[in-house]
Design a protein around this nucleic acid. Structure first.
Lengths: 214, 214
DNA sequence: AAGTCGAATTTATGATCATTTTGTTCTATT
DNA sequence: AATAGAACAAAATGATCATAAATTCGACTT
């Protein structure tokens, strides 16, 4: 194996260990020694790879977020129909955190990592890519006449903000199952607002009225 | 003037003074003495009306929120058409804070007063009324066949959460004018998803694509 | 030379306590 | 019922110090 590839693996191992320990104790309580122990190495060795504790945290989280993003990208790439792509993208992105417990726990501990406001987003570069992905889909849907001719930039921002809100509601500040219903209703409503007239009937059936407690 | 009415006025004066001082200094830095000075009275006198500093803060904020809500209620009541009511409600609620600088500043200082998550909402009783107002409109729209038969509870929760998010984006964590565009796009998109087929053409024209920076 | 380690050093953190500010209560007064 | 001044109690603030953790360094290994 090549030097560079080996190095990559080492970094991945470090980030994974860091994610695990930070998930368990949070940034403050987790020590470099905890992470070194997880890797069966001396704490000073970690400083060969990262500048300091903060950088280790930042890079590890970025690594986790990229994996999340790539899963969504793959799922979307496997689908042809734009309308379905919107649905797949929404669902895959939304459901992923249920699988990645470490990342979920880290976000729960530190919601500022995935904030509603891009101006305070430490990973705006990553999320910009996600918004670009969404814009591509919207653009294609409009070009193909499947979606109404909306303001792509504005709507993409809006939908992303909406999505972040639901991620927060579901995983970061969970309060019952209401948010899952809201996600469903939200996808329906927005898809309904997105789709151009002729294709309307293809949309999901609206949810039947159910009593919902707050 | 009656006893009770006079007392009401006194409370209003106290709450207004409190809102002003808390807006200027925040809960921590504002002192009871500051508020007493604003009212030209001794700080000990305030304890005749409220239990302690915290209660004064809570009650004053509740007073401010109720005024906001009533302005919206009045505006909605003045309109007949359900579709217009949705638009009026959204706009009035959204624009109000631009006028009430004190309340805006207090919310900015302390975003937990108007949170995205109802489980941590200190004023859930007030906001429950707002959601009920919205539900009434949706219900009527559906009954009249103007709106699609959606899940009223879920959608009302959703729209309220969506609205709170935009209030936060615009007034509590402002970052340029993007959020106003998002509000416009959001109202359009959701109205589009809400309206039943035949009435579709009455909806607002979609925003034309404009380049938007983040 | 890239990578690891143990010991040494610097930096952050938490506990304690004296001091001062501020919140709250009490009592007299109108 | 309502207000105010003085007295009191509680909480915030800031200084000091002990401890634990972060970071650096030079020697050692592969």
């Amino acid at each position: 194996m090549k030097r560079a590839a080996k190095r990559e693996l080492k970094y991945e191992a470090i980030y994974k260990a860091a994610l695990k320990v930070f998930a368990e104790y949070g940034f403050k309580k987790a020590t470099i020694e905890d992470i070194a122990a997880e890797l069966d190495t001396a704490k000073s060795s970690l400083y060969f790879y990262v500048k300091d504790k903060r950088e280790l945290y930042d890079k590890a989280v970025a690594y986790g977020l990229r994996i999340w993003q790539n899963k969504v990208r793959e799922a979307v790439a496997a689908e042809r129909d734009v309308q379905e792509q919107v649905i797949i993208m929404a669902h895959k992105a939304y459901e992923y955190l249920a699988e990645d417990r470490h990342l979920q726990r880290i976000l729960m501990r530190d919601p500022s990592l995935f904030p509603l406001f891009s101006s305070q987003d430490p990973y705006s570069d990553i999320n910009r890519d996600s918004i670009a992905m969404l814009k591509d889909i919207l653009q294609r849907g409009i070009t193909d006449g499947r979606f109404r001719p909306i303001d792509i930039d504005g709507v993409a921002q809006l939908l992303f903000a909406f999505y972040v809100m639901l991620i927060q509601k579901t995983y970061m500040f969970p309060e019952g199952t209401l948010s899952r219903i809201m996600f469903k209703d939200g996808v329906d409503l927005i898809l309904g607002g997105l789709i151009a007239e002729p294709a309307r009937k293809k949309g999901r059936a609206p949810t039947k009225a159910k009593p919902a407690k707050d």
